[in-house]
Write a protein that binds this DNA or RNA. Structure first.
Length: 228
DNA sequence: TGCCAGGCCGGGT
DNA sequence: ACCCGGCATGGC
């Protein structure tokens, strides 16, 4: 796939190293982020599902509730009734939906890997990705977050911030799809887990602090130096 | 007060 | 193949 649409926007022609340069600029500005904010791979999986279209602060509350009840492990969490689970994760919103989605993921994890994320990690990346995408409620971003941050697979996580920041700076077209954006990162970066982890985290930092939805001018953004 | 947040699904064109 | 409403809480 080669971004057949709107190729005129494509800045790589004149700035072939732009993806690496942006990473360096963000890293210098924000410093290392050390993502994902979670103590265990399982907590990362739970957080990835709960944070769908949701402020991370609210997700922290939900996770804290689970932690206090000692439910933050696959077997424990699979035992709690759906209704009770929904009640516990209420602070993160969409709680009925997300309770079911957690259950769907747990069912898959236990059925195929006996609740052992290390066994899941042993799977080949693309095979596992396709399997995870079959789970109802897990889309590309959620699955890729789990693959990268919980299972250490080299795959780039694309999110709303990635799309907004890179399209706003004319690096990608507004209509670019998830797959197209992801492929650009893969084509223009070394395929390293730590790089992918840090890069996505830095994009989120930039999106939260500067490239906000309602401030299109983005005046203090450290990336403006590329387009002055 | 209203808009936004680290999406995804299902039904309708 | 897109497009859109629904899902829901808490922060600013």
């Amino acid at each position: 796939m080669t971004l057949p649409r709107e190729q005129k926007y494509f800045i790589l022609r004149t700035k072939p190293k732009i993806f690496e340069e942006i990473f360096e600029k963000l890293l210098t500005h924000f410093g290392p982020q050390g993502w994902w904010p979670g103590e265990t791979p399982f907590e990362v999986c739970v957080g990835a599902i709960l944070t769908q279209n949701t402020n991370w602060k609210n997700v922290e509350r939900a996770i804290q509730n689970l932690k206090e009840k000692g439910l933050l492990s696959p077997w424990e969490l699979s035992q709690i009734p759906l209704r009770a689970l929904a009640e516990l994760i209420k602070p993160c919103g969409f709680y009925n939906l997300k309770a079911k989605r957690l259950k769907n993921f747990l069912e898959f994890l236990i059925e195929h890997y006996q609740g052992d994320l290390q066994k899941m990690e042993a799977e080949e990346r693309e095979i596992l990705r396709e399997k995870l995408l079959q789970i109802k409620g897990l889309g590309k971003e959620t699955v890729d977050s789990i693959l990268l941050y919980a299972l250490n697979k080299p795959i780039f996580v694309v999110d709303a911030y990635t799309h907004r920041i890179f399209s706003r700076h004319k690096i990608i077209p507004e209509i670019a799809t998830y797959d197209e954006i992801q492929e650009l990162f893969h084509q223009n970066l070394k395929e390293e887990v730590d790089l992918f982890k840090e890069y996505h985290a830095l994009i989120v930092a930039c999106g939260k602090n500067y490239c906000k939805k309602n401030t299109p001018q983005c005046s203090a953004c450290p990336l403006n130096v590329f387009f002055s």
